[in-house]
Design a protein around this nucleic acid. Structure first.
Length: 461
RNA sequence: UGCCCGGUAGCUCAGUGGCAGAGCAGGUGACUGUUAAUCACUUGGUCGCUGGUUCGAUCCCAGCCCGGGCAGCCA
């Protein structure tokens, strides 16, 4: 007899004379002549109720069927006599595959997220984290489906990179040199000529520059992979290792970029609603009561678009006192972004055309000479979920921007070559996968949507 | 990294300058088509660590460690 998943057993349309279930015991309740066992195998939020009659030969071992134990059950699928479930299984036999003693940490009660984080090896067996990681899997699939359906090609950009610039902050160094005794040059500096790649190398902070290469060949491409930032960030929305999706489109301007971003976000929410309904309902009940309403709200209306200059105007004239002053030319602070998305527009907002001085060298300079075609998509509750831009395709303007950022043309020779040979307007953005997952699930801390989060001081598991 | 809050039983928390508490979990028993079952009894403690003040510190003070929130950096 082959195994049936709990999800499929629960979805049965007719009774079955025999089936095999395998999973982990969530709880057992003993009655006089039999026991109720709730079995969950992770295939769905719901478990299935097993009836183990005291007349079973295996019943002698029933006290070892404890919360957390791995169990195999053979039996019949029948309509439930009790309330609360359509089907239940009358066991013909059960086998305890792996016991779980009284020290099993997951109890039949609510646990705090902080505690569950400490037992990241067991938390996928909880309702909440089972749901989070089922949705995570579906979301990853939906991302590929969205792009593949549109004719985008999936590009694997390198994880190890030699470009340390781009202003993206601290990088993780990749080296095989002996940290206690690195080879030195005559002037005392470390001799990276002798390192594995014969130059200093780092973990990638973005696949964008490489994605541009492929967009300028295959037209529409995307990357989806791990990204690393060695920032000492201690917030609920930053991780040192996270996954990012970066589409890049040739013959595309900022407007097209913003349109794709909006379509993409909506597609992912719609897909989750369609394929993870039970899990989302659970989040709506126990994590964020407003979640489902917010999903619908976001799907129903067009995202707002607002230039940086207009946004500053709104912030200046709204009559509110700001902790951080609002001034054209300064970065917008969290309180400002949150106000725009959560209070002023009450909707995801794309802010675009930022001051040139605030943004990296590769963004296209607008005709006004002082702004660039940058865009940030801000969503209520999380803040920035997407950052993107149209790229500077004009060789001379790019060279000038690189000079302003004190970047060496020699190191970016290949990037400049793209502007020498068949240059074309192109644009793209980066979507933080975990931030999107936070938005979809309502989970408030990025550490709880990553199986094993890497944050400053923490690399357990 | 800065500011703020916290660390007491396996978990969630209360509490006091003078013998350490509850609910849940665990154990024992009862009861029951139950579903975070219920009822009775019960086991369980380096009060984060180090030092100081004190006759006496879990409590007050300092430093450190760990966790969380917010901010910065960003996705």
């Amino acid at each position: 007899m082959s195994r049936i998943l709990v999800q499929d057993a629960l979805a049965a349309t007719a009774p079955r004379d025999s089936l095999l279930l395998q999973g982990w015991v969530r709880t057992r309740r003993d009655a006089k002549a039999f026991s109720f066992i709730e079995l969950n195998d992770g295939s769905s939020l719901r478990g299935i109720q097993i009836i183990a009659n005291a007349t079973l030969p295996d019943y002698a071992h029933i006290e070892r069927v404890t919360t957390g134990a791995a169990l195999e059950v053979r039996g019949k699928l029948v309509p439930s006599q009790g309330q609360g479930q359509k089907w239940e299984v009358i066991a013909d036999a059960f086998t305890i595959v792996g016991e779980a003693d009284a020290t099993y940490p997951l109890q039949k009660k609510g646990h705090t997220m902080e505690f569950l984080r400490e037992i990241a090896h067991l938390r996928p067996r909880s309702n909440l984290f089972g749901a989070v990681f089922r949705v995570r899997s579906r979301l990853a699939f939906a991302i590929h489906q969205f792009f593949q359906d549109k004719g985008f090609f999936y590009i694997h950009t390198p994880i190890v990179t030699a470009s340390d610039c781009e202003g993206a902050g601290e990088l993780f160094r990749v080296s095989t040199l002996d940290p206690k005794n690195p080879p030195k040059k005559p002037d005392g500096a470390i001799d990276y000529q002798q390192d594995f790649f014969a130059k200093p190398t780092y973990l990638t902070v973005s696949g964008q520059l490489e994605a541009e290469i492929f967009a300028c060949a295959l037209s529409n491409v995307y990357t989806f992979g791990p990204t690393f930032r060695a920032e000492n960030s201690n917030t609920s929305r930053h991780a040192a290792e996270f996954w990012m999706i970066e589409p890049e489109m040739a013959f595309c301007d900022l407007q097209g970029d913003m349109t794709l971003a909006e379509e993409f976000v909506k597609y992912l929410i719609r897909d989750a609603k369609e394929h993870c309904a039970a899990d989302l309902e659970f989040f709506g009940k126990f994590v964020d009561k407003e979640l489902l309403k917010r999903h619908d709200f976001v799907l129903e209306r067009p995202f707002q678009r607002c230039t940086y200059t207009d946004a500053i105007q709104i912030l200046e004239t709204c009559g509110r006192k700001w902790e951080h002053p609002v001034k054209w030319g300064d970065n917008m602070q969290s309180e400002h972004e949150r106000f725009l998305a959560e209070e002023h527009f009450k909707c995801p907002v794309t802010v675009y055309n930022y001051p040139r001085t605030l943004k990296p060298f590769y963004m296209r300079v607008n005709d006004d000479g002082r702004t660039v075609t940058a865009m940030d998509l801000l969503v209520p509750g999380i803040g920035e979920i997407i950052g993107g831009s149209q790229r500077e395709e004009r060789l001379e303007v790019l060279r000038e921007s690189m000079a302003q950022h004190k970047l060496s043309e020699k190191e970016y020779w290949w990037y400049l070559d793209l502007r020498r040979f068949g240059t074309v307007p192109h644009a793209g953005f980066g979507l933080g996968f975990e931030r999107m997952l936070m938005f979809v699930t309502g989970v408030g801390n990025i550490r709880d949507v990553i199986p094993f989060a890497r944050t400053p001081g923490t690399a357990e598991f």
